[in-house]
C-alpha cells in the first residue's frame, strides 16, 4: 500500500488509491451525466451521426466514392448530364462526371476549410479576449476591443469577399480571407466571460499569492471559458463552411476542376431547371454538413450549459 492519509477524529483511514478511485468514479459519473444531457435531445445524436458520416466519407473518399477518377481531369461526353440512376445516384454533370463521387470529395474541401480557418482564428481570438478581459478598464482593453469593434462593423462575408477578391482566387487565399474576419467573434465571446471571471475570488486569490499573469490567464481563467469556446467552434464549423462554399460559389475559393461543393453548385446552376441534379445535389451536401455541425453544436451547448453562445 502507498502513503496513508492520516485519520482525523474517528473517520476511517482512506488510502491515496481509494481517493484516486473515488475521483475516477466521480469523473465517470460526470461523463455519464454529460452524455445523458447530450443524448436527451435525439437531434444531437442525429447531428453527431451526420458529422461522423461526413468525416468518414471525407477520410475514405477514394475508397467509398464509386468513380474516384472523376475527381481528376476527366471527360466522358457520352455519359454527360445523365439523370440520377443506380449507376449514378446523383446523376452526372455537363462533362459526364459522377456527381456523387465529386460530392464525397467535396466534403474534404469543406471540412479542410473549417478546420484550417478555426485553428488559425481560435488561438489568437481567445488570447486577445483573455488579455482584454483580464486587463479590463485599462488601455490594453480599450485598444484590443476597439480594434475588434472595427472588424465587427461590417458583416464578415463582405470583408472576406473583398479580401479574397484582391488576392489570387484559390482555396488557401479564401481561408486566409475568412480567418482575417473571424477572430473578433472569439475575442468578444472570451472578453465577455473573462471580464466577469477576473473579479472572482479564485482569480483574486491567485493574484494575491503572486501567480504570474500567464498562470492566471491560462490556468485560472481559460479552463472556465473552455466549454463555450468548444460549443462555438462546433457551431462555427457550419458557418465557416457556408462562407467557404459561398466564396467558392462566386469563383473566389476552390477552383475547377477541383470538386468544391460551392464550385459545383455554381457550375451546375447554368443547367437549371432541366438538369437540376447537377446543382441541387452538391447544394444538399452543403446543407447536410452544416446541419450536422449545428445539431452537434446545440447538443454540446445543452451538455456544457454554455448559454452565452
Amino acid at each position: 500500500m502507498g502513503e496513508v492519509i492520516p485519520a482525523r477524529h474517528s473517520h476511517p483511514t482512506i488510502s491515496l488509491e481509494q481517493v484516486k478511485l473515488m475521483e475516477r468514479q466521480t469523473r465517470r459519473e460526470n461523463l455519464g451525466r454529460a452524455w445523458y444531457k447530450f443524448s436527451r435531445n435525439s437531434l444531437s445524436l442525429v447531428g453527431a451521426a451526420m458529422v461522423l458520416l461526413v468525416l468518414l466519407l471525407a477520410i475514405f473518399a477514394p475508397l467509398v466514392a464509386p468513380y474516384p477518377e472523376h475527381v481528376k481531369p476527366f471527360t466522358d461526353f457520352a455519359n454527360a448530364k445523365l439523370p440520377p440512376s443506380w449507376a449514378h445516384p446523383f446523376g452526372t454533370d455537363e462533362i459526364g462526371r459522377d456527381i456523387l463521387s465529386r460530392s464525397i470529395f467535396g466534403f474534404r474541401y469543406a471540412l479542410w476549410m473549417g478546420v484550417v480557418v478555426l485553428s488559425l482564428v481560435v488561438p489568437p481570438g481567445v488570447l486577445l479576449g483573455l488579455v482584454a478581459g483580464y486587463f479590463q478598464g485599462t488601455r490594453i482593453d480599450t485598444i484590443i476591443m476597439r480594434i475588434t469593434d472595427i472588424f465587427l462593423a461590417v458583416p464578415p462575408l463582405i470583408l472576406a469577399l473583398a479580401i479574397a477578391s484582391i488576392l489570387k482566387p484559390n482555396l488557401s487565399n479564401a481561408m486566409m480571407a475568412v480567418s482575417l474576419m473571424w477572430w473578433p467573434w472569439y475575442t468578444r465571446l472570451v472578453y465577455g466571460l473573462a471580464s466577469t471571471l477576473r473579479n472572482e475570488y479564485f482569480v483574486v486569490s491567485a493574484e494575491v499569492s503572486g501567480a504570474s499573469t500567464a498562470h492566471i490567464l491560462f490556468r485560472e481563467i481559460l479552463p472556465n471559458v473552455i466549454s463555450p469556446i468548444f460549443t462555438k467552434i462546433s457551431l462555427d464549423m457550419g458557418w465557416v463552411i457556408i462562407i467557404g462554399s459561398t466564396l467558392s460559389f462566386v469563383g473566389l475559393g476552390v477552383q475547377p476542376p477541383e470538386p468544391g461543393l460551392g464550385t459545383m453548385v455554381a457550375s451546375g446552376a447554368k443547367y437549371l431547371p432541366d438538369q437540376w441534379w447537377i446543382a441541387v445535389f452538391p447544394a444538399l451536401a452543403i446543407v447536410l454538413i452544416v446541419l450536422g455541425f449545428n445539431l452537434l453544436g446545440d447538443g454540446l451547448r445543452d451538455m456544457l450549459g454554455a448559454e452565452e453562445i
Partner: peptide, 23 residues
C-alpha cells in the same frame, strides 16, 4: 427553421428561381 438556418442564401436563391421562376 433548422433547415432555414443552415442552408446558404445562394442555395435558397437557386431553389426558388428553379421552383417559382422556372418550373
Amino acid at each position: 427553421s433548422y433547415f432555414g438556418v443552415v442552408t446558404p442564401a445562394f442555395v435558397f436563391a437557386i431553389l426558388f428561381l428553379l421552383l417559382f421562376g422556372l418550373a
